[in-house]
Design a protein around this nucleic acid. Structure first.
Length: 530
RNA sequence: CGGGCUAUGGCGCAGUCAGGUUAGCGUACUGGUCUGGGGGACCAGGGGUCGUGAGUUCAAAUCUCACUAGCCCGACCA
């Protein structure tokens, strides 16, 4: 009895001590916390401290996307989706301008279609989602619903990881004669690849993309199409996203399963890792043979159709984020920014607010007449400083601040997101200043990324050097390779670097494989990649 | 899919080891006053089935098991 009482008392005393200690610690933390919020960047992990955490923070805090209740699947939030819509509209126009048109094919693909192209199935089999039943029923043993085992599908359906099979099964019915060619179809769709490790935008179980699927009379025509679309992607990446890329062709082991050749555009992220930003495949007659798609030529001969496919995904948003952004948040290229200019008023009292709003609305209208997207943020619920930080986080390229001093002097303060510099300029002629500034920002962002990228391409001639560069510096490594899968695999095993591509503009150069010492005729591009 | 960690107001966390009265804090939110050229201050207020489900116990945020989701490392991969 006494010992029990003693124990109770002891417990209480130790609890009291614990509480006192926690309280002291808490006070210290609170003070520290207050100090921190006043002196440090508030919301983002620093890029230099933890790059992937910085990326995650950025995507979430800038309101681009968030994780969902479904494993591996993200919710693309309005601001992130607005960027995707801009990408879509630009790309869609580029596709139409090169003679393509849109269509839509089913989400579900009969399982048997996959077994028709053996190489292709190997590439995706391990990450397919499969529909086996078509009905639910109330759980007879309790709450909720269960799968109705009586509603089993005769043939399972695969949720498309890509649409070659369903499309080529369809093209078979569309194509009889050379007069039916070419077919230049594209579809905007979602696809599912059951990824084990996912990251917002970069790798998710479901993602959005476009996939072009074309059919041609001749090999030559299909190859030209493949390269044309690679150039379209290059144009988009460099001139719209401001992301410099390297065009190249994939090695046998890195190419799309089912393709003869896979062409790629490879971008470099700020942490020195490469990211494949788009691919264009020359499929040869592989799918035509698998789905028996023949056409009668002008000479009346039957031949298999030549094919291409090409795609870019919402991963481009990840590339956009990682290519340009800084510790203050996103940096968006003006050509893809949902909001290109934000106007923040600074005022005291209703009267001043009205006065400034009038000026702000005039500026807004004059900029909009030039085709610029402008947001006038006249919320009275947030202070100017808060808004400054918020739009920086969201990467709005240009901010115009208008306060009482500006009204007096007929000026505004213009702040650039890319350089974080501020200037006071006259309101007169601002509708001409801003478009030029947006162009300049677009160019500056690209040039900055380009000089970084160029500084991160290193030629090496020994395997020690190869490893040192990858570990200490990162980026692309140009090295001789003997052309064998074995060497490629070994290098990957030892360094985690893969051959990103054989650059299209590669110079002929006699050399020795950096790993095996065997002869090589040109250098290939290695990097650790996303 | 293997190893490790995690899940507590909207968000970020403490409390869990060692079960015990009314589960706290920051931030966000609501109202008010002062403010306003870089994430404001003060006062008052509301909000939590402690991831889900079972179990142990007089008593579970706390212990056990299963499940779900997330993060990190690996394996796999267009």
């Amino acid at each position: 009895m006494f010992s029990w009482l003693f124990l109770q008392i002891f417990c209480r005393i130790s609890k009291v001590i614990k509480i006192l200690l926690s309280f002291a610690l808490y006070i210290v933390l609170v003070i520290f916390n207050k100090y921190c919020t006043k002196t440090m960047a508030k919301v983002l992990t620093k890029k230099e401290e933890n790059y992937s955490q910085w990326y995650n923070d950025l995507v979430i805090k800038a309101d681009l996307a968030e994780n969902s209740a479904v494993r591996g699947c993200m919710v693309i939030k309005p601001y992130g989706y607005a960027i995707w819509e801009k990408m879509q509209s630009v790309l869609d126009k580029m596709f139409k301008d090169t003679g393509h048109y849109n269509a839509y094919f089913p989400l579900f693909i009969p399982k048997s279609f996959f077994s028709k192209e053996a190489a292709h199935v190997e590439g995706f089999a391990k990450e397919c989602a499969i529909v086996t039943h078509y009905r639910l029923k109330n759980n007879p043993n309790g709450k909720g619903v269960v799968v109705d085992e009586d509603a089993k599908l005769e043939e399972e359906l695969i949720v498309r990881p890509t649409s070659e099979t369903i499309i080529w099964n369809t093209y078979k019915n569309w194509i009889q004669s050379y007069r039916d060619l070419p077919i230049l179809a594209n579809q905007w769709a979602n696809v599912v690849r059951w990824e084990m490790r996912t990251r917002l935008f970069l790798r998710t179980a479901e993602f959005l993309w476009q996939e072009g699927h074309t059919a041609h009379e001749t090999r030559d025509e299909a190859e030209k199409e493949t390269k044309q679309m690679l150039n379209v992607y290059t144009d988009f990446a460099q001139n719209w996203m401001g992301v410099p890329i390297i065009q190249g062709v994939k090695t046998e082991s890195e190419k799309f399963a089912g393709a003869i050749d896979t062409y790629t555009i490879e971008a470099l992220m700020q942490d020195g890792k490469a990211l494949q930003a788009g691919t264009s495949h020359f499929l040869g007659q592989n799918f035509a043979k698998a789905f028996d798609v023949k056409f009668a030529s002008k000479e009346g001969k039957l031949d298999y159709v030549w094919a291409t496919s090409w795609g870019v995904t919402t991963r481009l948003i990840g590339a956009l984020v990682m290519a340009h952004s800084d510790n203050n948040g996103l940096v968006l290229p003006p050509k893809l920014a949902p909001i290109q200019v934000v106007i923040v008023p600074i005022y005291r009292g209703q009267e001043m607010q009205d006065q400034i709003s009038e000026t702000a609305n005039k500026i807004k209208a004059s900029l909009e007449s030039k085709g610029i997207s402008v947001k006038f943020d006249n919320r009275d619920t947030h202070k100017p400083g808060f808004k400054f930080a918020e739009y920086e986080l969201k990467g709005v390229p240009v901010r115009i601040a208008i306060g009482p001093k500006d009204i007096e002097n007929n000026t505004v303060e213009i702040a650039r997101r890319d350089t974080l510099t501020k200037d006071t300029v006259s309101i007169e002629g601002i509708e001409n200043v801003i478009p030029d500034l947006l162009d300049e920002i677009q160019n500056n962002i690209f040039n900055k990324a380009l000089s970084f990228r160029n500084s991160m391409i290193t030629k090496v001639d020994s395997f020690d050097e190869f490893k040192d560069v990858l570990n200490d510096k990162g980026g692309f490594v140009l090295a001789h390779w003997d052309g064998t899968k074995d060497t490629e695999d070994r290098i990957k095993g030892e360094t985690k670097a893969t051959i990103r591509c054989i650059p299209l503009d590669v110079e002929k150069e006699e050399g020795k494989c950096v790993y095996s010492g065997k002869p090589s005729k040109f250098r290939v591009l290695f990097a650790k990649a996303y």
